[in-house]
Nucleic acid binder design. Structure first.
Lengths: 245, 245
DNA sequence: GATCTTGAAAATACAGCGTATCTGTATAAT
DNA sequence: ATTATACAGATACGCTGTATTTTCAAGATC
């Protein structure tokens, strides 16, 4: 910062005294893969807001503008990040078992990657999943259903898939929103509980929220995992009911 | 812009020649409500990315820093925007009818506000809903269920509510992601269809996506509304199945 | 081998962002 | 009438995505 002050002047010293610029080192080799991996690394470590073209490029040892040889806009980088995660899910292997097992496995795999990459919840909204890995994933999901009894009609399989996916995405966002609020505040879980408790108590004390109050008092909350599983089972029951009609 | 050029010089003319600045006009009255409404107006008209403190303040005729008297960070403004939408939903009146009707009404109301305020899908991820209006909404939803047969246990009502909500949020994101991609490209629906069609065809031509191909060929896609409704019915069936056990 | 050409990387520049800090003034308190 | 306070506005900083300009390494040509 302050050691650049001298060079702010157009010509700080005589030419002879200034060092030549060191020869440009061979530029580090780049690829979409390397770029996307660097971006994911950043997002995992410091959140999606830490992903800037400057930082990604910096991590790779290049200038930010070089990335524009591989992507047209930052949006496209985010698209590539999402597709890379689909690749992760594919790599977890085939979906076997009955249709319920297949759908359950899919759901839990999605939950897994979202936990590994918390930034996904933000990107899943407002972004179509038409990348090659997303398509492979979708094909595999459909394939796991379309052979099964009751799913002869591919439309039924698609319907089931979309419904489960919608639930999974929504449920994960619910989980994430809580986690996010806590983390963003920079507090530990207990500190946050303690900080928001008075507000909740004051609201409940008004008597205008008897049902919420009952929940706070009576219900002992299951873990996120269990809650996720219960909701999922409801969906599967619904699909099963639909089939016997 | 360019009419300020002269005043870029430190002292354009002698003091005597310059007119006095007009007395400061009384600052326009501000409130969280006015601020939030301005922000929502902007978001509705030009998307969430158009919501900057500078623009919101500009719309209200004040400097950006004045907003910090009402909010601590921009994040808080977004929180207030979300809670304002919950107020909209509350204003639509009570939820009556059986539990299925109540849940269906809730779902469709949510779908309605998301259509009116497309930016909501982005904000729903990563933000807890603990504002006063969110709580009123939640209380009303629980109340609509907790009296019904089969929902004597409030935990069951909560479970049902959360599952439906998860589905609704996920399904709406699915809808939104498509719409968003099209709009972001600045094309009309048909142009976009035409622009992405070759890619899809090339992928399908590889033969690696037989199930997706079947869908493209065989299935005639229902409207978003119908698809939403079908998925919703699956959830409701699942909840019903759970109750008779 | 010296010169010229060319493609690509880096540097710079710009407009916009959230927000910290500084400055001036309209009003409240004395 | 004077001083104190609070608050609106101006300014500033470091960051962003990206357009434009500059610089240089390597290949082509003579």
């Amino acid at each position: 910062m302050s050691d650049r002050e001298e060079s702010d002047l157009p010509n700080p010293v005589l030419v002879w005294e200034r060092p030549e610029p060191e020869r440009r080192p061979a530029p580090v080799p780049l690829s979409r893969d390397r770029i996307v991996n660097a971006a994911i690394e950043l997002a995992d470590a410091e959140g999606l807001s830490a992903v800037s073209l400057r930082k990604v490029a910096g991590l790779l040892g290049s200038g930010p503008m070089r990335l524009y040889g591989y992507i047209d806009t930052k949006e496209e980088l985010l698209d590539l990040m999402v597709d890379a995660v689909y690749a992760e899910m594919i790599a977890e292997g085939p979906l076997d078992g009955g249709w319920q097992d297949a759908l359950r496995t899919m759901a839990h795999r999605t939950r897994g990657v979202v936990h590994r990459h918390a930034w996904l919840t933000v990107l899943l909204s407002g972004r179509p999943h038409q990348g090659p890995n997303a398509m492979i994933h979708r094909e595999a999901s459909l394939a796991a259903l379309s052979g099964q009894p009751g799913f002869a009609d591919i439309a039924v399989a698609l319907q089931a898939l979309k419904t489960v996916n919608a639930y999974v995405v929504g449920a994960l966002q619910d989980e994430a929103s809580e986690r996010h609020a806590i983390q963003a505040s920079g507090m530990t879980d207990e500190e946050w509980q303690l900080a928001t408790y008075p507000y909740l108590q004051r609201m409940l004390a008004t008597g205008r929220f008897p049902n919420i109050a009952r929940i706070v008092e009576e219900v002992d909350h299951p873990s996120h995992a269990e809650e996720f599983e219960r909701g999922l089972q409801i969906i599967l029951d619904g699909i099963a009911a639909r089939m016997n009609r």
